[in-house]
Design a protein around this nucleic acid. Structure first.
Length: 938
RNA sequence: GCUCGAGUGGUGGAAUUGGUAGACACGUUGGACUUAAAAUCCAAUGACCAUUGCGGUCGUGCGGGUUCAAGUCCCGCCUCGAGUACCA
């Protein structure tokens, strides 16, 4: 009877489904543990071997925690709204709802085959109305809230209204739009309702405003900063330009400081935290106000170097700034307009490519230096970004390289305020180094640090500026001109958004004929005929009924992909709740995610937005903790190994890899299924694969055609996809699971290489044979040998330590050593083999179940809580046994601790160098290996 | 440019965190079993020298340093990967 993995795996997958083995309960006396995977986008291509890597790792840990006696929540679901799902639908010409459904079914089939211990009764899909109802609900909470800077938390907007009614906004410290002007209580109370609404919109945590956005015409939508990579869209790689549009945004900036501080409290990879810190981009400095000569206007700038204020010789504004048009003089108007025009047309990518070229125009206007009253020319230049700070800088060419380059380029004077420095070649940008200020009025003779304090104090006393902290993090744009997303639950009355009442949720996505995105940015929901809100009937009605008195148009933008994924992990706790997004009891019991596994590509997207929503919902008292993921591990990507053939330029002749040296060849990707494990190509199969190879002639080396290899991302278009189903078919899911873990550390990116899989597979066969020594199952009830006990205990120790540290590759090595040793010992004792089956069960999940059953148990091994995983047992069993050597000094390192003083002396006397080193002192501990002293302590 | 991270056999990767470098696996070579193949088992496998007997020398990207002891710590380089990109 051999190891029939196909039969065994099918049997146990059926058993788990039937018995709901992995069903987690919300009531339990056991301690809880929540293991979460980042849920997948159900794209059309199905899973490749890279996708399950993280799921396997988290599954092992979840199963391990169950054995340790925890009530484990290990759910799975689908992020089924958003660009990837929609793009696939567009490509295949099918409705996204349909493609999403079929894709999910395919994913589920593939996932089931790998034997995960997910509790599928808790499955969520972000595109289900039951789910997005609560996404919309959270949106409404944000709409009805503002950020109180004094209390440093979000509060209901009603409490802001109360303050306005009593004191206006003069004493209110709240996060708001930059354009807010001060008003008194009288002024507020005198406002019309719609004026009040307009003002409140500047304070709401989600708000609508005219903003400069990243427009991607190909995708027909705007994109958030984190959806743009290298100036092109992350998805598809299409060009992106700047465009002004009315958009919903999320005031994530209000949480910048807390998002930064919170990182210190979570166990996340340092590199990922660093990415978030950089993205938030905190900088400390000052705001300084420069009056504009001959205008009412004041130019406010942010600078990290207020100490260099006396070095200002010009100002630079971002060309997009409104103020530019107001202050430009008649003579300069033509050139300024031309410059504004040319920068507006440049795509993001052009901008990035031309970072080195210096461009700008003088506006003709002058600012007055707030300390010296000198006239300072105002320029515009595209090296100043409209979106950062106030979109204006005070230029100090002697202290900043960009200002220096700009000044040199346009022949603007440079004033050196740093004593004894040479700035003939470059600016002096150092902050330290004992350089003193000169030509700087009351700052003369001071160094960086003192000058900073003194100048900020001076600015504040004279009301020309103040110490300020600035963040790079910008508010997140929340509207997408796409069909496949959550409808935003608002309608428009008098041009102002009015939220729906909670009781009307979900606002369901309407059916439309044409869901394709448009080039001009008109949302596809514009095609919906049934998309108006009747406030009297309180329901969605036909567009024809819009009358702007009782029936109003509904919002046509939808939410971005990150909306649903920003809170889904709480829905798993209580997935069927119809009255709350999660019940208080469920949230209090499960509390937070204990272990979160996913890729680092979400560092500045999902992982930041979800922390923002978490903090917001925490502020409002809906959630028990401020950070939702205690520990996070990034799994590295599994890459593909593409295969190449080399066509001699202009011919049908294909050269084997070793023959291309010095030849003019063109590498062409071929499907990796046409290549065997030794990189040899099946030439006949290639001819049939694609017509372009039908006439191919192959030039062989050593009788075979060798292909070239290159490691790159796994993708259908690169013909390098390895399908997990095929691996399961050939070797079994247990082999797949163990091999993926054996490949290397989980955090590391690594290419898939099927060549090594036989090692893991034969390990499983060997394990099987351990229980079936003569082809039939047989274990003995005799007492185990000391040797076998030692092997088992060493394995328990090593495996436990390795699982705790997520070092699954070394853990599997330990299993291999264990089984090899037990085989050599001809061990067949139940008292060894039974614990071994349990130990193996998080890894070889199906095999362990089968062995467990054969050992005579009627329950599932997955649910067994066994003392071998308990520390008490572990400590006792983990004592190291002496290892004997045939030398003079037969000690293990552990034993050397027990050397008597006399023995230590003997060892020292035997070694001249040691005597010299010790100089008569007596060591506490001596560590010895055969023939050598390797450590002396004391 | 800036910020992280990494460089170890033919290959993937270990190394108790300063203590016998190369665990485990793949690959390769030889052997056993077999009519044969597959499967399985055994042995060898960092390089170089020696080999009837022991053994020896060099070895963790490069160059220095600390230490009885360095893949691991410090200083200076080189290469690769990731993130970010005029952030004032």
């Amino acid at each position: 009877m051999g190891y029939n993995f196909l039969e065994i795996e099918e049997k146990w997958q059926g058993y788990w489904a039937k018995n709901k083995t992995f069903h987690a309960k919300n009531e339990s006396q056991l301690p809880k543990y929540y293991v979460l995977d980042m849920f997948p986008y159900p794209s059309g291509a199905g899973l490749h071997v890279g996708h399950p890597l993280g799921y396997i790792a988290s599954d092992i840990y979840a199963r391990y925690k169950r054995h340790k006696g925890f009530n484990v929540l290990h759910p799975q679901g689908y992020d089924s709204f958003g660009l990837p799902a929609e793009q696939y639908a567009i490509q295949t010409g099918q409705h996204p709802e349909l493609t999403t459904k079929t894709n999910i079914a395919r994913y589920r089939e593939q996932l089931d085959r790998i034997g995960f211990s997910f509790d599928w009764s808790r499955e969520v899909r972000t595109s289900n109305p039951d789910f997005y109802r609560w996404t919309q609900w959270i949106f409404l909470q944000l709409f009805h809230s503002y950020y109180d800077k004094t209390a440093d938390k979000a509060k209901p907007i009603s409490s802001l209204v109360e303050q306005f009614e009593q004191n206006g906004n003069l004493s209110v410290k709240a996060e708001c739009a930059a354009t807010v002007t001060p008003f008194t209580a009288e002024e507020w109370n005198g406002c019309t309702t719609s004026k009040k609404e307009e003002i409140l919109l500047d304070y709401r945590l989600t708000y609508i405003s005219e903003t400069e956005v990243n427009w991607c015409a190909e995708l027909g939508t705007i994109l958030a900063n984190d959806e743009i990579v290298n100036g092109v869209s992350e998805r598809g790689g299409y060009p992106v330009t700047k465009k002004k549009m009315k958009q919903w945004s999320m005031r994530i900036g209000a949480y910048a400081e807390r998002l930064l501080q919170g990182l210190a409290t979570v166990d996340w990879p340092e590199s990922l935290k660093e990415m978030q810190r950089n993205w938030i981009g905190k900088s400390i400095g000052a705001s300084v106000r420069f009056p504009v000569e001959g205008h009412q206007a004041t130019l406010e700038v942010f600078t990290t170097r207020p100490d260099t204020l006396f070095g200002v010789t010009f100002m630079t504004l971002a060309p997009e700034l409104e103020l530019v048009k107001k202050i430009t003089t008649a003579e300069q108007k033509a050139s300024v307009d031309a410059y504004i025009e040319s920068t507006a047309q440049r795509s993001e990518r052009d901008r990035m490519a031309n970072v080195k070229t210096i461009s700008g125009v003088f506006t003709g206007a002058y600012a007055l230096h707030p300390l010296t009253q000198e006239r300072v020319p105002i320029w515009i230049g595209d090296y100043v970004l409209a979106g950062y700070g106030t979109g204006a800088v005070m230029a100090v060419p002697c202290g900043d390289q960009r200002d220096y380059d700009f000044a040199k380029h346009f022949d603007i004077p440079i004033k050196n305020i740093f004593a004894e420095t040479d700035i003939s070649e470059a600016a002096y940008a150092e902050k330290s180094g004992g350089v003193k200020l000169q030509d700087s009025g009351f700052l003369n003779g001071l160094e960086y640090k003192e000058a900073m304090t003194k100048v900020i104090q001076h600015l504040e006393e004279n009301n020309i500026g103040q110490g300020t902290i600035n963040y790079r993090l910008r508010d997140a744009i929340f509207s997408r001109q796409r069909y496949w997303g959550e409808p935003i639950p608002v309608y428009y009355q008098n041009g102002l958004p009015v939220p729906l009442d909670e009781k009307h949720l979900p606002l369901e996505l309407p059916k439309v004929e044409n869901y394709l995105p448009t080039q001009d940015g008109a949302p596809p929901l514009g095609n919906a005929t049934h998309w108006a809100w009747d406030v009297e009937e309180e329901k969605v009605v036909d567009n024809k009924q819009i009358n702007h008195e009782t029936v109003f148009p509904l919002e046509m933008n939808t939410m971005p992909g990150w909306a649903g994924s920003s809170w889904y992990f709480y829905r798993y706790m209580d997935p069927h709740n119809a009255t709350a997004f999660v019940s208080k009891e469920a949230a209090d019991y499960w509390k937070e995610v204990d272990l979160y596994l996913g890729g680092s590509e979400h560092a500045t997207g999902h992982l930041l937005y979800s922390r923002f929503w978490q903090k917001f919902l925490f502020d409002l008292g809906h959630l028990p903790v401020e950070e939702y993921a205690k520990k996070l591990i990034n799994q590295g990507m599994i890459l593909g190994s593409s295969a190449f053939v080399y066509r001699k330029a202009g011919t049908q002749e294909y050269l084997s890899k070793g023959l291309i040296e010095g030849e003019q060849v063109e590498p062409i990707r071929v499907d990796i299924s046409l290549v065997n494990l030794s990189d040899e190509l099946d030439c006949e199969a290639l001819k049939k694969w694609q017509p372009q190879f039908a006439e191919a002639r192959f030039v062989l080396e050593d009788g075979v055609y060798k292909v070239g290899r290159e490691v790159e991302k796994m993708s259908k278009s690169k013909y390098n996809v390895v399908n997990p189903d095929q691996i399961c078919e050939d070797y079994g899911a247990d082999t797949l699971r163990m091999y993926e873990m054996f490949l290397g550390p989980i955090e590391q990116a690594k290419p898939w290489n099927t060549a090594g899989i036989s090692g893991v597979h034969s390990f499983l066969k060997k394990t099987w044979r351990l229980y079936h020594p003569n082809e039939t199952f047989s274990v003995s009830d005799d007492a185990p040998s000391a040797e076998s006990l030692k092997t088992l205990h060493q394995t328990i120790k090593k495996v436990t330590e390795d699982i705790e540290q997520f070092s699954f590759n070394t853990c599997i090595s330990a299993f291999m050593i264990c089984v090899n040793e037990l085989s050599a010992q001809k061990c067949n004792q139940r008292s060894i083999l039974e614990p071994l089956a349990i130990l193996l069960s998080p890894f070889a999940v199906h095999l362990a179940e089968e062995l467990w059953e054969r050992l005579g148990h009627s329950d599932s091994v997955s649910t067994v809580s066994y003392p071998i995983f308990e520390e008490k047992y572990l400590v006792e069993s983990s004592k190291n046994y002496p290892v004997s050597f045939n030398g003079k000094m037969r000690f293990t390192r552990e034993l050397s601790l027990e050397l008597s003083p006399k023995e230590i002396e003997e060892i020292i006397l035997a070694d001249e160098q040691t005597q010299k080193h010790l100089q008569g002192r007596t060591p506490k501990k001596v560590i010895v290996v055969p023939g050598k002293i390797i450590n002396i302590v004391g």
